[in-house]
């Protein structure tokens, strides 16, 4: 939410700090009987301390696969083929299953898409909040644990008595806040929020988002926000990565990206958004994303790109920094 000079300064401060997470050359394939589906192909990025990085893309662009890969939660037939995921100096890809288990929630936590449906319907909220803390053995006695539960509920704007309620007694937004409370219970360095509000109404979406950003600031954590709502990204993220067919098309500061998108896909995507400001013809992007089973040569977007030329077919454009803080993978630049 960049609205004053101060905010702009804090936003750029967030961006200039050292990375908390560095991803290098990550590839994730799903092995099917028809061959390997290359869901994420050679992706590199980093998230700096306190930063809010957004990942947007259509379904099948690989954004949720990245989230699961960072948590090492890709299930067969999916597999992390190559790459490293360095969180706070540790390469998560190399950890044993047991070591990874202790990292989850502790260092890296997930607020999932339908998280509100992931609460156990027959267990009250308090035990569900305590569960993770107990498993990670943070050494609190029962009384301290209770106090911690109330503290967590308070930090997400819920009343104390929610602790003794069942999930069905809460609204969707309140359940999502409980899930945020669980995610921050061990003060992780990185919160991955995979479409945390896509099942909620706009008003509730805004309240839940405000809560998430507040706890992120309180903790000093970084956030990886995944979604397809460009408006939400513009309002929330410091930097946004636009994904197409398992790769980044563009990674830019959100203020730059939304005012002046550089990659043709970013441009078309932003132009296709209906506006509440003025009416006009609605322009979709013609064509479909390529099959990830059989990637075309060269640029993945070239078949839908209005500016495609021969070089786009011959060679794949690398993701390059063409202006400060603006990475674009396109031969036009």
């Amino acid at each position: 939410m960049v609205n004053t000079v101060d905010d702009i300064q804090t936003a750029s401060k967030r961006i200039d700090t050292a990375p908390v997470l560095t991803v290098n050359g990550l590839s994730v394939y799903y092995h099917t009987s028809r061959g390997a589906v290359k869901a994420v192909e050679n992706v590199s990025f980093d998230i700096r301390a306190h930063e809010r990085l957004g990942l947007v893309g259509e379904s099948g662009s690989g954004k949720s696969t990245i989230a699961l890969a960072l948590l090492r939660m890709i299930k067969p037939p999916g597999r992390i083929e190559t790459g490293e995921v360095i969180l706070d100096g540790t390469d998560l890809v190399r950890l044993s299953e047991e070591q990874m288990r202790s990292m989850r929630l502790n260092k890296i936590a997930l607020v999932a898409q339908g998280a509100m449906n992931s609460l156990n319907p027959v267990v009250k909220i308090k035990p569900q909040l305590i569960d993770g803390m107990k498993d990670h053995d943070i050494g609190l006695n029962d009384k301290q644990m209770d106090a911690r539960v109330y503290e967590l509920l308070d930090s997400v704007g819920l009343r104390k008595d929610v602790a003794d309620m069942y999930p069905h007694e809460l609204s969707g937004g309140m359940k999502q806040r409980v899930c945020i409370a669980i995610a921050i219970s061990l003060r992780p360095k990185l919160i991955i929020a995979d479409e945390p509000t896509s099942a909620l109404d706009v008003v509730v979406q805004r309240q839940v988002m405000d809560t998430l950003l507040k706890v992120q600031e309180d903790l000093g954590a970084s956030i990886l926000l995944i979604g397809h709502d460009m408006g939400l990204m513009a309002q929330v993220a410091d930097r946004v990565g636009i994904m197409y067919a398992g790769e980044f098309a563009e990674v830019s500061q959100s203020a730059d990206l939304f005012s002046d998108p550089l990659h043709p896909y970013s441009q078309l995507l932003i132009n296709s958004l209906p506006s509440i400001e003025h009416k006009g013809t609605l322009k979709g992007i013609p064509g479909l994303p390529p099959s990830l089973l059989d990637r075309p040569s060269g640029c993945a977007f070239r078949q839908r790109c209005p500016f495609a030329f021969d070089r786009c077919e011959a060679e794949e454009p690398p993701l390059r920094e063409i202006r400060p803080n603006r990475l674009v993978s396109c031969h036009l630049y």
């Binding site: 960049v2 704007g157 609204s171 937004g173 309140m174 008003v203 929330v236 959100s254 509440i276």
Partner: peptide
């Protein structure tokens, strides 16, 4: 309230930071 809550990509119009009515309260 509905219209104010729509996240827009125009960054000159940001979500107001005023305290919202809180459904959970």
């Amino acid at each position: 309230l509905l219209i104010e809550s729509i996240p827009v990509i125009d960054l000159s119009q940001t979500w107001k930071k005023e305290k919202l009515d809180d459904e959970s309260q």
